[in-house]
Design a binder for these strands. Structure first.
Lengths: 145, 145
DNA sequence: TTTATATGCAACTAAATTAGTTACACTTTG
DNA sequence: CAAAGTGTAACTAATTTAGTTGCATATAAA
């Protein structure tokens, strides 16, 4: 089970909020569409909220909505809210490690991996939630637009 | 412990082989520099070997070396040999899933994530083992060149 | 031919991550 | 006050990961 699907789930959830267009959407509604548990959705919405992407209203008739228009929320914003570290980790060195070459190699590897990750992040910045829902709209059967 | 460091370890190991320059290097030597267990190194070298990047000689005085010059081995080659699936998974749908919007959203999310992953992979193709060891050489103390 | 030195691989462990679930406190609407 | 939401802690099961031991196999060299 342990494959990280949170980023995809977060995009799906945020996409639904964008779809809802300022209407409050419950975690249960999102959970149905995402095909998971409401608590899982709320955990992810919590991260998005902490990052200022989502507003939550508690209590009866509560729910969530985006705090900004979808064209002002990039997938990079969502990524940063959801994922913590770098894509690939460079293993830590034990304390009494003493190989000079190894010590030189480590930061170099970290650098080149960062270069590759950087272009990934830049591409995420280019892609907005609006792009995603436009794609969805254009593919939905019985599309009005 | 469960953070994936294999890609970084594989680059480190392949970098050492490039450093060795056609001389056979044992998994134990690499393990010392990488600061891990020889078996872990052999597992990774096995993947690289299966992918045609590394040649292994068994028995006494055995070890590994690159099968191509370092400037003809990209980090993409190593990545493909080591890692299997996409960077981010889109969760599977349960059998009796019936939300039309959700069904439309899924492939769209997969597509946009793939776009971001693609630029990552392209950057990996641009970076070769030669680049890595050149960087290491230039930073090694008492560098001759 | 024997011995020392390698690799390959299976099997197991411990730790961490992940998603799912239950339970319950809290908030808000009506 | 009741109903309908969210937030969050606690727990579980499955998976991944790295590390480790043990042993069969291969090979170079004495």
């Amino acid at each position: 089970m342990a494959a990280n699907t949170r980023f995809a789930v977060a995009i799906h959830a945020a996409g639904m909020l964008a779809f809802g267009d300022r209407v409050l959407v419950t975690s249960e509604t999102i959970a149905k569409s995402v095909d998971t548990n409401p608590v899982v959705v709320r955990r992810i919405l919590g991260l998005l909220t902490r990052y200022g992407l989502v507003e939550v209203q508690m209590g009866a008739c509560g729910g969530s909505r985006l705090s900004r228009p979808p064209d002002q929320i990039s997938l990079f914003d969502i990524y940063q809210a959801i994922e913590a570290g770098p894509l690939f980790q460079v293993p830590l060195l034990t304390e009494n490690y003493n190989c000079p070459v190894g010590k030189t190699v480590r930061p170099v590897i970290q650098e080149v991996l960062q270069k590759a990750e950087d272009v990934f992040l830049i591409k995420l910045k280019e892609l907005t939630l609006a792009d995603v829902i436009n794609l969805v709209h254009s593919r939905l059967p019985n599309c009005k637009s």
